[in-house]
Simulated assay, not measured.
Amino acid sequence: MNFVMKQALGGAQKDLMANMPGKTEVDPEEAKRQEEQLQAMEDAEKDRQKKWQKQENAREGMRQGIRDKYSIKSPEEKAAAEEAAQNISVPPGLQGMADEEAVDESIMGQAEKMMEETKAKAAELQEMAMEKVNNCKVS
């Protein structure tokens, strides 16, 4: 009976036996193929990374050429300049002046400055009007 079953299943008996619980028969050729496949995938990934790095280096060279041509700082140079600017200590008197200039340069600062000028002009005109009213005599 066993022989008839083997004959009916053909070469599929090994596959069926491998799927049965408790029986773990590893085909050495299959293990070797899997190992080769994993190695091939790792090699392909390394090649892809090398290719990408080569392309990125070429792009960075082009970017640097443009930066040099138009005198643009690279992101690293900008970050270094900002960090250096933050590390510089400013005397207290000058810091206040710098803050005032920053406020004056902003849109809100400009609006506040115009409002102050308008209030001063309105107060001046009100004084002049009150002075004329006080000097006016009705007979």
Score class of each variant (00 low, 15 high):
P21L: 09
E30G: 06
A84Y: 06
E112W: 05
E56M: 07
L94W: 02
A122V: 08
E100K: 11
A44H: 09
D43T: 13
A84D: 15
E127Q: 04
M128E: 13
K46C: 07
E42V: 08
E117D: 02
D68L: 04
A80K: 05
I66Y: 03
R59H: 10
G22F: 02
N2Q: 08
Q13N: 08
R67L: 13
A79R: 04
A31D: 10
L38M: 07
Q55I: 09
R63H: 05
M62S: 08
R33T: 00
M5R: 01
L94I: 11
P28E: 09
D15G: 15
E105H: 00
L94H: 07
I107R: 06
M97K: 12
E45I: 12
L38H: 02
Q53D: 00
L16M: 08
K54N: 01
G61H: 06
A129R: 11
S89A: 08
Q64Y: 03
P92S: 06
A31I: 05
S74D: 02
N19Q: 11
A12G: 04
A12N: 10
E124G: 03
S74R: 01
Q110T: 13
K23W: 09
K113S: 15
N2P: 02
M114Y: 07
K46F: 08
A79P: 00
S71Y: 13
M114T: 11
D68F: 01
A31H: 07
L125Y: 10
Q95C: 01
N57C: 03
E45S: 12
R48M: 15
L125G: 01
S139G: 04
T118K: 11
E131C: 01
T118W: 04
S139P: 01
K69E: 09
K50E: 06
T24N: 12
K119W: 03
M1G: 05
A18T: 13
A102M: 07
K50L: 13
M115A: 12
M62I: 15
E77S: 03
N135H: 02
M128L: 12
E60P: 00
N57K: 09
K78C: 10
I66T: 05
G109C: 06
L38Y: 00
A80Y: 01
A123D: 05
E127V: 12
E25Q: 12
K119E: 05
A79L: 08
M128C: 02
V133E: 01
E101Y: 10
